[in-house]
Design a protein around this nucleic acid. Sequence first.
DNA 1: GGGTAAGCGAGACGGTACGTCGTGTCTTCGC
DNA 2: GCGAAGACACGACGTACCGTCTCGCTTACCC
Lengths: 212, 212, 212, 212
Amino acid sequence: MESTENEPAPAARRHHGNRHRRSEEARISVLQAVDGLLVEIGYARLTIEGIAQRAGVSKQTIYRWWSSKDELLMDAFSKDASDWMIPSDTGRLRDDLRAHAQRVAEFMANSDAGAVFRALLAQAQHDGDLAERLRSEFLVEQKTYERLPLEAALQRGELPQNADPDLLAAQVFGPIYYRVLVSGETVTPAFIDALVDLTLANTVASGSRPGS
Amino acid sequence: MESTENEPAPAARRHHGNRHRRSEEARISVLQAVDGLLVEIGYARLTIEGIAQRAGVSKQTIYRWWSSKDELLMDAFSKDASDWMIPSDTGRLRDDLRAHAQRVAEFMANSDAGAVFRALLAQAQHDGDLAERLRSEFLVEQKTYERLPLEAALQRGELPQNADPDLLAAQVFGPIYYRVLVSGETVTPAFIDALVDLTLANTVASGSRPGS
Amino acid sequence: MESTENEPAPAARRHHGNRHRRSEEARISVLQAVDGLLVEIGYARLTIEGIAQRAGVSKQTIYRWWSSKDELLMDAFSKDASDWMIPSDTGRLRDDLRAHAQRVAEFMANSDAGAVFRALLAQAQHDGDLAERLRSEFLVEQKTYERLPLEAALQRGELPQNADPDLLAAQVFGPIYYRVLVSGETVTPAFIDALVDLTLANTVASGSRPGS
Amino acid sequence: MESTENEPAPAARRHHGNRHRRSEEARISVLQAVDGLLVEIGYARLTIEGIAQRAGVSKQTIYRWWSSKDELLMDAFSKDASDWMIPSDTGRLRDDLRAHAQRVAEFMANSDAGAVFRALLAQAQHDGDLAERLRSEFLVEQKTYERLPLEAALQRGELPQNADPDLLAAQVFGPIYYRVLVSGETVTPAFIDALVDLTLANTVASGSRPGS
DNA sequence: GGGTAAGCGAGACGGTACGTCGTGTCTTCGC
DNA sequence: GCGAAGACACGACGTACCGTCTCGCTTACCC
C-alpha cells in the first residue's frame, strides 16, 4: 500500500519542490494513535492532545495537516473502510444480496472501521460539512455497491424491467442500518434472510403486475 | 425586629418561589432554555453554562437535578416527543401506514423534537447508558406505534395470517430513518408511497393469495 | 443546664419576656464546633457550612445570630480570652512584669484562645470593622492590664514620677507580639527577663536624669 | 541570545530542562495587576480571575507559574520591598536609628508594599509554609538592617561592649510593629523619638558609664 | 388546652470563584 | 523548513461555599 494515495489534500503537497517534506512517519503514527485511542477510550474522550501524546507528535503537526478532529477521523476511516464495500458477484441475486447485506451488517456492527463510521455519523448529525464529506467520500460509493447486485440482476433479466434497484436496496439495507444505529438490536442472519426474501418476493410479485 | 415574619408587600417578591422541594419553575425554564438553544445554536455549541444563563438559573441547580447534558436533553425530549408517536387509525392499512410514515418522517427531519432526537441518537453512539435509556423511554414505544397499523390490519384480516408486522414495519420505516440519519436525502411523499406500496404488494402477493 | 454565665450578649437575651427564645443548645454547640474546627482544620478551611454540619445546626440558625464568620469567631474568642488577661500583683514590679509577660506570651503562642486571637488579628488586617471590634472588646482591656503593674509601681514610688507606663509597657510587650506574630521565634523566659531588666534599668536611669 | 541557561532577568528561573521561555510580558503584567487590585479593592476581594482579567492573561498562565495566591503576592511583594530596607548611616546612632525606625513605620503603615506585607503576614498566620517563606525571603534581611545601626555603633564604641543589638532593636522596632499590626495606633515621630531615647538612655546608662 | 408564632433542621436557590482540561495559535530551537 | 515541545488566551467544566429563601416540625406562651 503506497500511502500517498490517501493524500489528496493539495495544501499538503505544496512542499513538493522544497527541501523539506511532510513526515510520513508522523502521519502514520497519528492515524494509528487515532485508531488505538478510539478503541481504548472511545470517541467521547478522544482529544487532540491525547492523540498527539500517543503518537509522539506535537499538536502543531496535527493542526498543520488536519483541520479538525473529524477530518482526522475521516482519514483514519478512509484507510480501512474500502475493504468492506465491494459485493461478491455469483450471478445469483438472492445469494449476492444476502452475502453483501451480511457483510455490511458485520462492518457496521462489529468492525473497528464500523466503529469509526458510527462515530463520524454521530458527529455528522451536528456538522453539515462533515455530513457532506462523509456522503461524498463514502456513502455514495457504499450505496452504489449496495445497489450493484440488484442492477446486475436487472440486466440479467432476473428482475422485472420496472423494478427499482434503489428502492429495493433501501428496503434491504435500511432496516439493517436502523438496527445498528437506532434500536441496537443485533442483525442476525435470519433477519437478513427474511429481509431479502420478502424484498425479492415483493419485487417479483409487483414487478410482474405493474398495474396493480 | 419583631415584624420580620410576613411579607405583606407583593411587590417585594423578587425571588423565585422556592419550595422546600424542587423548584418547578427552575425545572421548566431549564428545559425551555435547552429547547431554545438547541434550535438557535445547535447541539455542538450547547453548554451547561449557556443553558443556566438563558434559564436564569445557577449551574448548581442544573447539576443537582441532571447528571449530564445528555440526561438533560433526554428530559427536554420526553417533554415533546409523545405528540408525534400515535398513528391514526382509519381502518385502511395503506392510508394509515402512509400517514404515519409521513408523520414519522416529518418528526425526524423537520421538527424541533426531532432535532433533539437526532442529537441524542448521536450521543448514544458513544454512550451505552444513554442508548439504553433512549431505547427504553422512547424507541420501544415508538416501534410499537409503527407496528400498530399493521397489527390492526392483521387482526382485521387485511393481511395474511403469516405476515410479520415487525418485518414489514422495518421495511417501511428503516429506509426513512436511513435517509434522515445517514444519507441526508429528503423523505418525499412519493418515496413513502413507493415504500408502502411495495411492502404491501409483496405481503399480499406472497403472504396469501391476492384473491382471498 | 442553664449556662447563662457565658451569655453576655444582650441581643440573645432580648427574647427574655417573649414566648419564644433562642436555643442555648444550638448556640453552645456552634461555638464548640468553631473551636474544634479551628484546631482541626485551621482558619483557612473554616466554613459556615462546615460549622453548621459539625454543630448539627442549620446554616440559617448561624446567620440568624451572627452576621459574619468573624463575628462568630469573636464570640468563640470572648468565651475563652478573659482567663489570660489579669496580671498578678505581688508588689514587686520586676516579678509582676515578668509573670504577666510570660502569661501573655503563653496565651499568644500556645493557647487555643491565642490561636483564635491570631486568626482574628489576621482577618482584622483586611477588615476595619473587625479590627475596631477586636480593639474595643479585647485590646483596650488587654493593654490596660499590661500597664497595670507599671502603674501600681509608679503609685508605690517604685518608678520615677516622670516614667511613662505606656511607653514602658510597649517596650516590654511589643517585642513579644513581634516574635509571635511576625518572626515566629519562640518567646523564652530568658528573652522576657532580658526585656524586663533592660526596660527597668532604662527607666531608673532615664527617669532619674529627666533632662538628658 | 545564544544560551537559555543563563537568564539575565533578575527573577528566578526554575524551569530547568525547559527550552521554552516564560513570557516576561505576562509575568510583569500579572504582578502589576496584583499591585493595582490590592490597592483598589483590597486583599479580601482579590481573586485569581480578577487578576487574570486585569492583566489580560489567562488563569492557566497564573496557575502555571504560581502555586497559590499567596505565592503570587509574595512575588509582587519582593518586587517592591527592597526599597525600604536599607538604613542610612550617618555615624550618629540616635539619628540613624530614628531615621530607620521612621522609615520602617512609613513602610508598614502607609506604603503600598507595606499593605502587601500586612496581607502576607495575615495569611502567614494560617499558613506555615508562607510564614517560612516570608521569613527567609524578607524578615531575616529586614531584621539584619534593623540591627545595623546598633552594630555599627557598637563597633565604633558608641555603645558599651556588652550591649545586645538584637535586644535593643527589638525594643525599638517591636512596639512599632505592634502599633501597626495590632493596636492600629498611628506611629508618630514623637513615639519613635521616645522609643529611641529610652532605649539608648538605658544602654548608655547601664551598659557603660555615660561619660565615655 | 388550643391556636399560633418564633426557633429550628433541612436544603434548594442564584451566584461567584475555584482549579483543571482541552482548544487552536504562536514561538523557540534542534535536526 | 519541518517538527517536538510547550506557553499562551480562551472557554467550559464540575465543585465548593456564599448568603437568602422557603418548608414543615416542634415547642412554649397567651388567650
